[in-house]
């Protein structure tokens, strides 16, 4: 939580689960059921929740290879656009993608 001195990336808001939440909140705001401030607060809760769940609950690994088309490093954020990418998941599931965009923020060491 922000009060505890730790802030969370808003990066995951553009995942499907984040977009679905934003859409829902938007509906509630436009029907004047909640205030935008509350919606912002909920989005912050979401930032925290998804970061924690991904960090603590997810154990899966994966590797990928591909051809780097574009790279960018700005404000500690890496952006890659990789083409002809091949993924290997840890359950031997494999698949290809034509083009994928990677947005990566600097991993924070979990507060001890």
């Amino acid at each position: 939580m922000a009060q505890q001195g730790q802030s969370y990336y808003e990066l995951y808001r553009s995942t499907s689960v984040g977009m679905a939440l934003a859409d829902t909140l938007d509906d509630l705001i436009s029907s004047r059921r909640i205030e935008p401030q509350l919606a912002m607060r909920i989005m912050q809760n979401f930032d925290e929740s998804i970061a924690k769940v991904l960090n603590e609950k997810v154990k899966a690994r994966m590797t990928f290879k591909g051809h780097l088309d574009t790279y960018r490093f700005c404000d500690e954020v890496w952006t890659f656009i990789i083409k002809d990418i091949h993924f290997k998941m840890d359950n031997a599931h494999q698949f290809d993608a034509e083009k994928i965009k990677i947005v990566a923020c600097l991993a924070k060491e979990k507060a001890a």
Partner: peptide, 28 residues
Amino acid sequence: WKCTLKDGVMSANGKEWVFHKGMGEFEW
């Protein structure tokens, strides 16, 4: 290039995956 990714949500081919750690190798 080599990169080590963590705590990712991947969306590809209309489906989504989550991973704790991802290793990527690619050439420019």
